[in-house]
Design a protein around this nucleic acid. Structure first.
Length: 285
DNA sequence: ATCCATTCCTGTACGC
DNA sequence: TGCGTACAGGAATGGA
């Protein structure tokens, strides 16, 4: 999916375009997402004003003046597009194959949520009780907040035998880090992805925390990473993918590596928990 | 308590 | 061109 930088990029665009706008009409085209969509979303969204759009972990939270919040998670292949009235000039909205939610705003623009694989989710919840909702209730700390420190991570990893790569992807330990940025952050920190999470020194965890923040911030600055499905809300691709150090670069030389990939084999691809991990055996120990 | 494989669903790339 | 297979950015689940 969209990991934290991609979701953050989308949220910033949505905030710019949607806040203070009123939803004129809404249409939900399926209830079959990762969790069944409950309630009459179309009716509950119509005539409501959007007062804020924020991110929590990889969730998009759209606060409405009705005291409810529209929650969107993009799963692996979800995307959100906003289209101007001007680009639609006179045309009726045409639903594409995997469009699941359509909103028409009072300035004539439209927001569409699409998700071919339907691993994403949509929910409308009481804003006041949002944090009690199970998927949000168990989430760990935000990696870009100041209070996410080596001490935080150390405490959360204590005694864990699972690999550090898998631990970083566990949203109860730290949120927002998915398959790409887990590999990238571990490369920056020089930590081998298979190390037991609970056995890494505080010093190395401090470097890991810095690396996580650094790679996430750099990617946000680049508008995220586009592999296949991800697009910014205006339809443009991100461009951080061109700056990956190890992700999807098996056999190549890692940035600044001293070794000859012809001999060393370069960046390795292994599988952990069913997901690909990329790392440099020379620089990551 | 922790960890692992499996599952949801669809699209695409690749080898034959 | 067509077919089968593997794999893809996430996260919940059940069983070990």
């Amino acid at each position: 999916m969209p990991e934290l930088p991609e979701v953050e990029t989308i949220v910033r665009a949505l905030a710019r375009r949607l806040v203070k706008k009123r939803i004129k009409q809404a249409a939900l085209f399926t209830t079959r997402l990762r969790l069944p969509v409950t309630g009459n979303l179309s009716r509950q969204l119509a005539e409501k004003r959007i007062i804020a759009v924020v991110r929590r972990a990889k969730y998009i939270l759209i606060h409405l003046d009705s005291g409810r919040t529209l929650v969107i998670h993009l799963g692996m292949t979800g995307s959100i597009r906003i289209r101007d009235r001007s680009t639609q000039a006179g045309k009726l909205f045409a639903r594409a194959r995997h469009d699941h939610l359509w909103l028409q705003l009072d300035d004539g623009s439209e927001m569409v949520f699409s998700d071919p694989r339907r691993f994403g989710l949509l929910a409308l919840l009481e804003t006041e009780n949002l944090e009690l909702w199970a998927p949000l209730a168990t989430l760990g700390p935000e990696p870009l907040e100041r209070k996410f420190t080596a001490a935080t991570l150390h405490e959360r990893l204590a005694g864990r035998k699972v690999s550090i790569k898998q631990a970083l992807m566990n949203q109860e330990i730290v949120v927002g880090v998915g398959n790409i940025y887990a590999s990238e952050a571990l490369f920056l920190a020089g930590i081998k992805p298979t190390m037991a999470a609970g056995r890494i020194s505080s010093e190395r965890l401090a470097l890991l925390v810095k690396s996580i923040k650094k790679v996430l911030r750099a990617s946000i600055s680049a508008g995220g990473s586009t592999l296949k499905d991800y697009r910014q809300a205006n339809g443009e691709t991100g461009f951080f993918q061109s700056r990956f150090s190890v992700y999807d670069r098996a056999g190549q030389r890692c940035p600044g590596c001293c070794c000859d990939p012809e001999k060393s084999g370069g960046i390795q691809r292994i599988v952990q928990g069913g997901r690909s991990t990329f790392y440099c055996p020379v620089r990551q120990r």
